[in-house]
Write a protein that binds this DNA or RNA. Structure first.
Length: 554
RNA sequence: GGGCGAUUAGCUCAGGUGGAUAGAGCGUUGGCCUCCGAAGCCAAAGGCCCCGGGUUCGAGUCCCGGAUCGCCCA
């Protein structure tokens, strides 16, 4: 609807220019937005205001000319007003709104699906935690945000690929191996001081026990370095299995887990270095090889190969991004913890040096989560082994509440996650507010069926036009859903969907308390059933986008 | 010492990429179940949008400077 109106208004500009009623100059971008206030109609445009300096005319005069040139072929406009400094306010005909509403149940699960992406291949990389321990709550936020961004992009018509990158070539995996190996030796009766820089968590003991039970004490006699390799591989794999299972329970699944070792196996780092060298972006200094990232906005050049001949983590990471692009993805989206923000300029510099456009890679920084219990911070550290795992949170508060909580703030703002609050079934916990709206609608529909009222009718059957202000507001809100998906997809902001759903739920609850859907008047009942049926679709599709269930009873 | 992000109601936060009279929840106070689900609704109170400049028809939003907090790098 908005795009149709936009087309009409844009057409008016062009016609007026063709007729020389307006000067033929290029216009800056202008807007057509849903009006905030009812007296301003349904949609408002600032085109006359924005174009005034370009046309060198007064905004109101421009508005008048544009209004004269509107070609409303489908007869959707009730009236047009020029208001304030020069806004053009559009009032849409009631019939048109009902038509839009009717499109919602018709579209069903596809309501909210748009073709913004036009099938473009996009990769979302997220979580990417090293398998040195179970996922904790800090990872959970990034997991949900990545997952929902992927959902939104898919709904917006992109061809989405979800990937988890495993940094398994570095020494963290060796540390894990050593940690488990030491615990294993303890099981063999050895008294040793467990190193402080090893992983302290209970899961390390469990892995050691597992190996002991399967393999016995045979590694006690092996050289440490050899044994550690086995322990690292075994433990990493086991932990990764656990991570996968936890993520799955959290509603997050990946198309691919990509290993850093695989990257080396393919020689990707060499290819990268060669390419950078050919393009003259590499120089040597102090025995190290440096990449001139400052040429592309980084604040200093970066080492890519150390004196030892070993590529840096940065080199591998850049090679990985190049690898992604070589697989045909047109856009890359990385979800990172905000503590890695310093990394953004250098990776972007690398991609630009290799000839990719600035916006090829978009990095979403996710701020850390403060975990609280009844307002008291819960201390966490992977190394010390003190952390609340994702699994524990899931078991305690459930998937829906956990996910919804992570989606209630912008990614880049700090988030307090209170375990006790997340368990409460009140408005402190808006997930239930939205789910309740859905369940309520389902309940009404059930009741209607029990009473033998037709619930799947079409709006044309009823003479009742849903003309109440509350009904108009609900229709508009429901019709706006695809625009919300579009905005969330463009800005990569999942929280927009969350806020939207809260808003629509609020409108609905309010409406429900004030008016009866199943009332005395049959025509009215039919029309209202039609309305809430459309709302049910909006709630279900919206919640599905968030990976949250839409229960029919609660 | 440099960089990134933040600062909006008592608290936690939204405010499509500059639009008309700044919003929501929690909390506080007072109301609403004989009736489709009270996990809900209605009403009231609550604001120097951190401070100071600038850009323009118009700034919570953009630019510059400063303050405070968080993080990253030296």
């Amino acid at each position: 609807m908005r795009s149709e109106l936009f087309f009409i208004l844009d057409g008016a500009v062009k016609t007026a220019q063709a007729e020389a009623s307006l000067p033929k100059v290029e216009l800056p971008p202008w807007e057509l937005t849903p009006s905030k206030e009812e007296s301003h109609g349904d949609y408002a445009s600032n085109v006359a205001l924005v174009s005034a300096p370009y046309f060198k005319m007064s905004p109101r005069k421009i508005a008048e000319i544009l209004v004269e040139h509107l070609d409303d072929t489908n007869n959707m406009i009730e009236k047009v007003e020029i208001a304030g400094p020069g806004f053009i306010n559009f009032f849409i005909r009631e019939e048109r709104w009902l038509m839009e509403l009717a499109g919602i149940p018709e579209a069903g699960d596809d309501w909210g699906r748009i073709n913004l992406g036009q099938g473009e291949k996009v990769q979302v990389e997220f979580v990417s935690a090293n398998p040195t321990g179970p996922l904790h709550i800090g990872h959970a936020r990034g997991a949900v945000i990545g997952d929902v961004i992927a959902n939104i992009l898919a709904s917006a018509g992109y061809d989405v690929w979800r990937e988890y990158y495993i940094n398994d070539a570095g020494n963290q995996m060796q540390t894990l191996g050593r940690s488990v190996f030491y615990r294993y030796r303890e099981l063999g009766g050895e008294k040793l001081v467990f190193p402080e820089n090893c992983y302290q968590g209970e899961y390390v003991r469990e892995l050691a026990k597992e190996i002991w039970e399967r393999e016995g004490g045979k590694f006690l006699s092996q050289p440490e370095e050899e044994a550690i390799n086995f322990f690292a591989d075994y433990s990493g794999q086991k932990i990764l299995e656990g991570i996968r299972a936890d993520l799955k329970a959290f509603g997050v699944e990946f198309d691919c887990y990509f290993s850093e070792r695989e990257l080396y196996r393919q020689g990707a780092v060499e290819v990268l270095l060669q390419e950078l060298t050919e393009k003259n972006f590499i120089y040597e200094e102090d025995g190290s090889r440096w990449f001139r990232s400052t040429l592309y906005g980084d604040d200093k050049d970066r080492v890519v190969v150390r004196r030892t001949g070993e590529p840096t983590y940065f080199a591998a990471d850049l090679a990985y991004h190049l690898n992604k692009l070589s697989r045909g993805f047109k856009k890359l989206i990385d979800i990172w913890g905000a503590d890695h923000h310093g990394y953004v300029p250098r990776i972007k510099a690398g991609l630009r040096a290799l000839g990719y456009k600035e916006d090829t890679l978009r990095v979403i920084l996710v701020q850390l989560v403060n975990l609280l219990r009844d307002g008291v911070p819960v201390a966490m550290s992977t190394r010390s082994g003190e952390f609340v795992t994702l699994r524990e949170v899931l078991d305690e508060v459930g998937k829906d509440a956990a996910r919804y909580n992570f989606l209630m703030r912008r990614s880049d703002s700090h988030l307090d996650f209170d375990l006790e609050v997340a368990k409460r079934q009140s408005m402190e916990n808006p997930v239930y507010y939205v789910q309740y709206a859905h369940a309520r609608i389902c309940s009404i529909l059930r009741m209607a069926e029990e009473r033998g009222i037709e619930t799947t009718g079409c709006i044309e059957k009823s003479s009742y036009r849903l003309h109440l202000p509350e009904e108009r507001a609900l229709i508009k809100a429901a019709v706006r859903f695809p625009e919300i998906v579009e905005g969330a997809a463009l800005m990569l902001e999942p929280h927009r969907v969350t806020f939207y759903l809260n808003e629509v739920a609020g409108l609905f609850h309010s409406y429900y308390n004030r008016y009866r859907v199943l009332g005395e008047n049959e025509e009215e009942t039919q029309a209202r059933l039609f309305l809430i049926n459309a709302l049910r679709v909006v709630f279900r599709n919206g919640l599905t986008l968030l990976g949250v269930s839409a229960p029919e009873r609660m």
